[in-house]
Simulated scan of single mutants.
Amino acid sequence: MNIKICGIRRKEDISSCERASADLMGFINIKRSKRMVEIEEIIDLTSFMKDKKKAVLVIEPENMADAKQGIEKTGLRNIQLHSLSAEEIGELKDDYQLTSATAGDHHIKSDLTIIRALGLSEDIDPQKVREIQDFAGVCDYLLFDYEIKGKTGGTGRQIPLKTAIEAAKIAKNSNPDLELFLAGGMDKKRIEEELETLEEFFDFVDVNSGVEDEPGVKNTSKINELMKITVLNKT
Score class of each variant (00 low, 15 high):
residue 5 I to P: 01
residue 7 G to E: 04
residue 10 R to E: 14
residue 11 K to I: 11
residue 12 E to C: 01
residue 14 I to P: 01
residue 18 E to M: 06
residue 19 R to M: 00
residue 21 S to Q: 10
residue 22 A to W: 01
residue 28 I to Q: 07
residue 28 I to A: 06
residue 37 V to L: 05
residue 38 E to P: 00
residue 38 E to K: 06
residue 39 I to Y: 08
residue 41 E to D: 12
residue 42 I to M: 08
residue 44 D to N: 06
residue 46 T to H: 10
residue 46 T to A: 06
residue 49 M to A: 07
residue 50 K to F: 06
residue 52 K to E: 03
residue 52 K to S: 08
residue 53 K to Q: 05
residue 57 L to G: 08
residue 60 E to A: 13
residue 61 P to E: 05
residue 62 E to M: 05
residue 62 E to H: 06
residue 63 N to L: 10
residue 64 M to K: 14
residue 70 G to A: 09
residue 72 E to A: 12
residue 74 T to A: 08
residue 74 T to W: 00
residue 75 G to E: 05
residue 75 G to D: 04
residue 79 I to W: 06
residue 80 Q to W: 13
residue 80 Q to R: 06
residue 82 H to P: 01
residue 83 S to V: 00
residue 87 E to C: 03
residue 90 G to S: 15
residue 92 L to T: 07
residue 95 D to A: 15
residue 95 D to M: 15
residue 97 Q to E: 14
residue 99 T to R: 06
residue 99 T to P: 00
residue 104 G to Q: 09
residue 104 G to W: 14
residue 107 H to V: 11
residue 111 D to L: 13
residue 111 D to Y: 00
residue 114 I to V: 14
residue 114 I to N: 02
residue 114 I to C: 00
residue 115 I to G: 04
residue 118 L to G: 00
residue 119 G to K: 04
residue 119 G to V: 06
residue 122 E to D: 09
residue 122 E to C: 01
residue 124 I to D: 03
residue 125 D to K: 00
residue 126 P to Q: 08
residue 127 Q to C: 02
residue 127 Q to A: 11
residue 129 V to S: 00
residue 131 E to C: 09
residue 133 Q to N: 06
residue 135 F to W: 03
residue 139 C to N: 11
residue 142 L to Q: 02
residue 148 I to G: 02
residue 149 K to V: 12
residue 150 G to Q: 05
residue 151 K to G: 00
residue 153 G to N: 13
residue 153 G to D: 14
residue 154 G to R: 13
residue 155 T to R: 03
residue 156 G to W: 12
residue 156 G to R: 14
residue 158 Q to H: 09
residue 159 I to A: 10
residue 163 T to R: 11
residue 165 I to G: 02
residue 166 E to V: 04
residue 167 A to C: 09
residue 168 A to R: 12
residue 171 A to W: 12
residue 172 K to A: 00
residue 172 K to N: 02
residue 173 N to Q: 15
residue 174 S to K: 14
residue 178 L to A: 07
residue 178 L to Q: 11
residue 181 F to E: 03
residue 186 M to T: 13
residue 187 D to V: 01
residue 188 K to W: 05
residue 188 K to L: 14
residue 190 R to E: 05
residue 190 R to P: 01
residue 192 E to Y: 07
residue 195 L to V: 04
residue 198 L to C: 09
residue 199 E to H: 07
residue 201 F to M: 07
residue 201 F to D: 05
residue 207 V to Q: 03
residue 208 N to K: 06
residue 209 S to K: 07
residue 210 G to M: 09
residue 211 V to S: 01
residue 213 D to M: 11
residue 216 G to M: 13
residue 217 V to K: 14
residue 217 V to Y: 08
residue 220 T to M: 01
residue 223 I to E: 00
residue 224 N to A: 10
residue 227 M to N: 09
residue 228 K to R: 14
residue 231 V to F: 00
residue 234 K to A: 15
residue 235 T to S: 04
